[in-house]
Design a binder for these strands. Structure first.
Lengths: 160, 160
DNA sequence: GGGTTAGTTGACGTTTACGTAAACGTTGAC
DNA sequence: GTCAACGTTTACGTAAACGTCAACTAACCC
């Protein structure tokens, strides 16, 4: 086919990008509002270029790793303003490393919380098994694990 | 000393509890507003009993493991209403297990994000070292690790 | 004209856990 | 007397990332 996805002159509607990346129109307009995207217009309608699509990809990737929209915008701005592309790569690298550090910190926090939780669970289990062993829940939590996996996941909760 | 901390008739001012648990008066009043605490009054001033102190401890522990205030309130309510104490222990246990599952899920999300981040970092590092090796940041991130550890940590960021 | 589909803008709502005044009362120190 | 320190209440502000209307338009089909 001549109309390849990669052909630079190909354009996209808001709905196409939403379907492709599983976003909502509201979200794309919101990103535009925040200066992350600036699609062309055809009359009123937004027309997303190939470059816009790439930007959107970067935005969503940034979100997945837990960057805020304003942080993402800073990075995207660099890609525009910058001439050689080396300086902004260095800045991106720095940002990414910071994010990685923050995430590792979050992981430690979670581990700490898990330790506290497990202790509390153990205490409760001991006392319950002494007093009312019939009330001890059992297979129910497997349910929850399964439901959790089908639910919201893939994105990182933003700390702070 | 006769005036032991553990003597049940001992009471506390808002400030004392704040200092002890490193909270702000605003926070304690807020918890009261939300029905988590109901200290006595001496005129206008709040007077926290021994039991109030225990409740506050439970509140803060709940927060540390990432429970929302409304979830904490549900648990605390059970401690009050319930007669034998077994049923609410079972419910607490269930809640805690759910929280543990959710936290484990969050950990996986973070791990996924970290993988993506590390890949991105590796790409950037490769390209930078080819093009502008002088721009590669180095010891700077150790700084950030240290600063991060001194900063906000100990509490779990609530996801979703 | 009527209906459907997809697009637009604008504005308010949601959620959580408080922070931050504003305005006032009480008590003790100096 | 007056200042500071601590307490009180009420109420609005904040941050993030959209969701959820409402009201309108433009295009296409019959």
């Amino acid at each position: 086919m001549l109309a390849d996805l990669r052909r630079p002159e190909r354009t996209f509607t808001i709905r196409q990008l939403c379907n492709e990346f599983k976003a909502t129109p509201r979200a794309l307009r919101f990103y535009e509002d925040k200066g992350l995207l600036t699609p062309a217009r055809e009359g009123l309608n937004r027309v997303y270029s190939h470059k816009d699509r790439v930007r959107l990809q970067l935005i969503l990737r940034g979100k997945r790793v837990g960057l805020s929209l304003s942080e993402i915008r800073e990075l995207l701005d660099l890609y525009d303003e910058n001439d050689d592309g080396a300086a902004q790569m260095a800045r991106s690298l720095k940002k990414f490393r910071e994010r990685a550090n923050a995430l590792e910190q979050q992981r430690e926090d979670i581990d700490g919380a898990l330790i506290e939780l497990r202790e509390a669970c153990a205490r409760l289990e001991r006392r319950l098994s002494e007093i009312r062993p019939d009330l001890l829940p059992r297979a129910a939590d497997y349910d929850q694990v399964l439901r959790a996996r089908l639910d919201g996941h893939g994105d990182v909760a933003l700390g702070k």
